[in-house]
């Protein structure tokens, strides 16, 4: 079967099957390997993407369920030349160690900050509660999200002036 979806702003038509997971479609068919497979059961968040603006685990979606959807993967956030403030903050806070959880963490952080630009630590924990990190102990990740919020607020204020 053929499905049609928008991935990082680009329309894609993909020949796929009824049992292909969105995760595999992204990684294998579209070669977008920034999205990671961890547990394969929706428990770790490494495969997190945004589907029509909602945070989802791409291992728990079949490709046909994403037909006509808009998907944002980590490849759609920032660029090598111009990092997203969240990506910058993760680097500056030292919130990346092995990096496997980072794409999912950044997408979850992005969604959180879109909805809540000044989250409390508790709100950050809740926003990232679907994403596991086995390296950092989370403190630096939470610091990175707070730093992102600060940067985005500063930028916003700059714009107003």
């Amino acid at each position: 079967m053929q499905i049609r979806l928008t991935v990082n702003g680009e329309e894609r038509v993909v020949e796929t099957t009824a049992t292909t997971r969105l995760l595999d479609l992204l990684r294998t068919d579209l070669k977008l390997t920034g999205t990671k497979e961890g547990c394969g059961k929706g428990e770790c968040g490494a495969c997190t993407v945004l589907l029509n603006g909602q945070l989802v685990a791409s291992c728990l979606l079949l490709a046909p369920q994403a037909d006509r959807a808009e998907i944002i993967t980590i490849e759609g956030i920032g660029s090598a030349e111009g990092l997203d403030p969240i990506q910058e903050s993760y680097l500056e806070a030292g919130a990346v160690q092995c990096g496997f959880c980072t794409p999912g963490m950044i997408l979850a952080s992005k969604k959180l900050l879109e909805e809540n630009p000044r989250p409390t630590v508790e709100e950050i924990r809740r926003g990232l509660s679907g994403n596991l990190c086995r390296c950092t102990g989370y403190h630096k990740i939470i610091a990175a999200v707070r730093l992102s919020a600060q940067k985005m607020a500063d930028k916003g204020e700059g714009k107003d002036e």
Binding site: G42, Q54, L55, V56, L60, S129, G130, N131
Partner: peptide, 9 residues
């Protein structure tokens, strides 16, 4: 329930 990812689906 679950996590944001799970609750969204």
């Amino acid at each position: 329930i679950g996590s944001p990812q799970i609750r969204n689906r």
